[in-house]
Design a protein around this nucleic acid. Structure first.
Lengths: 201, 201
DNA sequence: CTATTTTCTTATCTTTTGTTAACGTTTTAG
DNA sequence: CTAAAACGTTAACAAAAGATAAGAAAATAG
């Protein structure tokens, strides 16, 4: 895929949030970079400041932390989603999460510095604030839903919900990552699956 | 407490996010209302659209859902925090959460309609977009941390963390609400507390 | 293609949590 | 002030989850 195709995909996706006119788009796109992230390479690492945000044109990534030497998957992102170690990006402090490509991926990225320049550019400031607001609101709701699921549902219920609404995760992610994502161990997810199969039968 | 004191508290808090000049503040504050919310009364209810956001000048609220006839607490807010059924406010769809005053509370509120007017007022638009972005980013991080805790920590670890960082919740909330907040039952929290006491001793 | 690694399931045992109920204490409402 | 409701702990049992290990199947790398 060439850069201009990638850029068009990105521009099309952004229309959900904001509509740049031609002049604004030119200014905005000057701040964008293209990056290939090879499978298993890192977009962000725990302990390091992540000073950029990416948009996945092609590929997928996994968010994980390491606890007691074990790798625990917290989230996934696929095509047409943003990725970053958000807390680190927003606060400027070292992050606690690894963000790793699950396959060779193509990203469009901008740095915190780019964003700050745009936020300070009178020609872009308003739209970038709005852009940032709408993105943050979108992911705020995603996280809120996820917290709600942990508080109000059992692991089995969370898995059943994933069966209904999480097609992409189910199809593209190995089960032990999904188990972590649901807040349980792989062994436990295997048992839940068995239980569900027996109930259906 | 009189309205002008409340307004000053609010204005002071907002400085964390944004600095209004006098003209802007006058425009902004025209859209604000004051509301007393009596103990056990609702700021938002499940199944209804919540078209407003509040700021708690005095008091506290509890977020909960009802599942299988049981009331499950998901979150708390105290003085100097915002409250809303955010997803409902942001999407305009009926919410799934009750937001209830835990004590007689004093709020400053604005409606979605007020916010839209401000976002469309050239004199305020830029600052309101920025305000919205920074608020959303703040609560995005809060939710992200909470998701991380559910994925990477045991209930006991989450409670121990609350002992370190959740003074206000521990001091002002009954234990069965805290248990829900941690994703466990009240009985289980009671056992965890006992276990911790025995370990310390 | 083959050796290695990864993935998933299953079994066993331990630990933790959920459920229900009982009890005493505290708080609340009238 | 008093009756009722809410709260926290504990016990007993059931259900579920964690830990560990073993084995088969699938995917991957060289």
């Amino acid at each position: 895929m060439d850069s201009s195709t990638a850029l068009n995909i990105f521009r099309e996706h952004l229309k959900r949030y904001i509509d740049f006119n031609e002049a604004e788009w030119i200014l905005f796109s000057q701040h964008l970079s293209f990056a290939k992230l090879k499978k298993k390479h890192y977009f962000a690492e725990s302990g390091k400041v992540c000073n950029k945000v990416g948009f996945i044109v092609k590929g997928s990534v996994r968010y994980f932390q390491i606890k007691d030497g074990e790798d625990i998957t917290g989230y996934f992102s696929f095509e047409n989603e943003f990725l970053s170690s958000y807390k680190s990006y927003l606060t400027g402090l070292p992050g606690h999460v690894y963000v790793q490509a699950l396959e060779d991926s193509l990203l469009i990225t901008f740095t915190r510095n780019d964003m700050d320049e745009m936020l300070n550019d009178p020609m872009l400031a308003y739209k970038m604030e709005r852009f940032g607001r709408l993105i943050a609101e979108h992911y705020l709701i995603c996280n809120e839903d996820r917290v709600t699921a942990f508080v109000t549902q059992t692991p089995e219920e969370r898995y059943l919900e994933l069966l209904n609404t999480g097609r992409e995760i189910l199809q593209r992610m190995p089960q032990h990552y999904i188990a972590n994502y649901l807040g349980i161990t792989p062994v436990s997810l295997s048992r839940i699956r068995k239980r569900i199969l027996e109930t259906v039968r």
